[in-house]
Design a protein around this nucleic acid. Structure first.
Lengths: 177, 177, 177, 177
DNA sequence: TATGAATGAGGTTTCATTCAT
DNA sequence: CATGAATGAAACCTCATTCAT
């Protein structure tokens, strides 16, 4: 059975991701969750705290579920997996990533995302080094930029072409087996 | 001499682009512009109308100032210019593009932007065709999306690496002279 | 040729009588009259003054046009004419009476109307006296009340039945020739 | 103990009936009721909704309290009771009828009133038929209109002469026992 | 005479949040 | 744990009115 607290979180996520944080009133969240408005503030100190909770717990779960993400079986394999990562992430938790996409100006959200992506950077760099790319650092920036691009696009709903793009990019990087 | 109406528009743009539309009160705009709040509503019917005016007139000016944008002197030249377009746009009107970036979920803003980019698409496709790319359509989608991400990134302030990326991409596309 | 001042007065009357005084903005009056809002305040000190002007000049004209109203050619004739007066008044200036009907709580309007009806009262009383009615004073009150009733009803647009009622009343009072 | 919601309703009725709806601010209602302005909007969605509630519940109560109104013990008795109805109504709820009188151009108010008076019409007609009046339909219209004017007059405060008139009318209709 | 530009005061309504129960 | 009742602050917007030209 799903707790009322969880109900609040789910409805809030659904609303924040579709209407945006500011345009979603606590009243509406309460109504959709079938609870009193006051309960939101019993469980979370404020509307901001509710958002932070959603972000934090979201990344926690994602980190849990993608623990193998960093396993390195060779440069080409890693880069390919990075290119297909966005699709996996967004497929697993579309609402969450839709919300993230909307929160590009929310500092806490950005911080959490940066922390999530931080361990990836050196591994990508290693891959480009092993593949003898001329400027591994810049190539890393570019790939991360592309990854960013892809999950934002997928989160926006344009999944099909995004997957095609990922494939096209994999070909360009020559990492397709 | 700059009119009060223009003053309102400028302050509104400044505030919307830094704090966001919803988080900027008409009172603050008025205060910063040194006018009465009522004057905003004399010149623009509503806060929304003010935003629409900013968007519309912004794109109008940009279209004016980038009339040569579509001149085609060969595929490589065109693709290169497309890759450097974001930098040019954002350098010319940083606040405006910052605002646009924030408004990615605002339907009118999207519509205006789509209209602005619409004529570009067939030309890019032509370029890829002339260069004998295998899937010109998908390549076009990809490039347009890259352009989109580049200006958003630049608008967010990350200019230096973005320019570097544009250069790197130009090399990858083999369009650098 | 009709002056701008007159244009304002006419449009104001039209709007006040259909939408009511408070629900009609000076902005709308100006727009409908095809003049600037400021001009209203050049010609009339305030919105209230404009209303007062309309009322005062309205009654002035009506008094002018109904000078013969009080001529007494015998009791029955007078009472009959009184019963048909509402129809004549409202037919002549429907908008004006519609406005009056709306202004039942406006003290100036009431005062003007009372002044207009004042000279009628003693004549009606005289008629009832001559006809040997038992309580001429109360009968006078009642007839004035009925007249009031009738013009308000006609001003509201229900003209046909009101005329029928007037006729029926004339029969009841036995004043039809 | 009287609830805050009821307090709001009462103060609103008092103010609307004396100052009129538009000229009464929600702020003043709140102040007079000793509650916050926001509470008005918690209990009633809007100022208009508050007014509608007052009208609707007012008529509901009146209908309850005047259930015997339509009992028919003979034509003369019924007509006499109709003539004295205005006085009974206004005596019972003077503020409410004062408000109704002010709202003669408010469509919802008119509709409610019409619905309240609707069942009366056929009974009056029946009475006039039984009394062999020549044009029962027109007589009905006239009587209903007289009733209408009487309660409006009483609601405006002119009670004494109105009662006298009702009595005089009863004599004229020959319905006084 | 006529206007465009400007405003202070005030209106209704929404919001996140608190508190007694 | 859960809520209904309540609120202060602030939002957008409209209004009648003034004034320099």
């Amino acid at each position: 059975m799903i707790s009322r607290k969880e109900k609040i979180v789910r409805e809030a996520l659904a609303l924040f991701s579709t209407q945006g944080f500011v345009d979603t009133s606590t009243k509406l969240i309460a109504k959709n969750a079938g609870v009193s408005e006051a309960l939101i503030f019993k469980h979370f100190k404020s509307k901001d705290a509710l958002l932070s909770h959603i972000i934090r717990s979201g990344y926690q779960r994602i980190i849990m579920e993608h623990k193998g993400m960093l396993t390195y079986k060779g440069p080409k394999d890693f880069i390919r997996r990075m290119l297909y990562l966005p699709n996996k992430l967004v497929s697993d938790a579309p609402q969450f990533w839709k919300l993230q996409e909307r929160l590009s100006h929310h500092s806490f959200s950005r911080a959490q995302h940066d922390q999530f992506m931080k361990p990836v950077r050196p591994v990508i760099k290693r891959a480009f080094k092993e593949l003898n790319y001329e400027d591994p650092k810049l190539e890393t920036e570019l790939l991360i930029f592309i990854i960013d691009m892809l999950w934002k696009r997928e989160a926006s709903g344009e999944i099909k072409t995004s997957v095609k793009m990922a494939h096209l990019l994999a070909l360009k990087y020559d990492v397709e087996p």
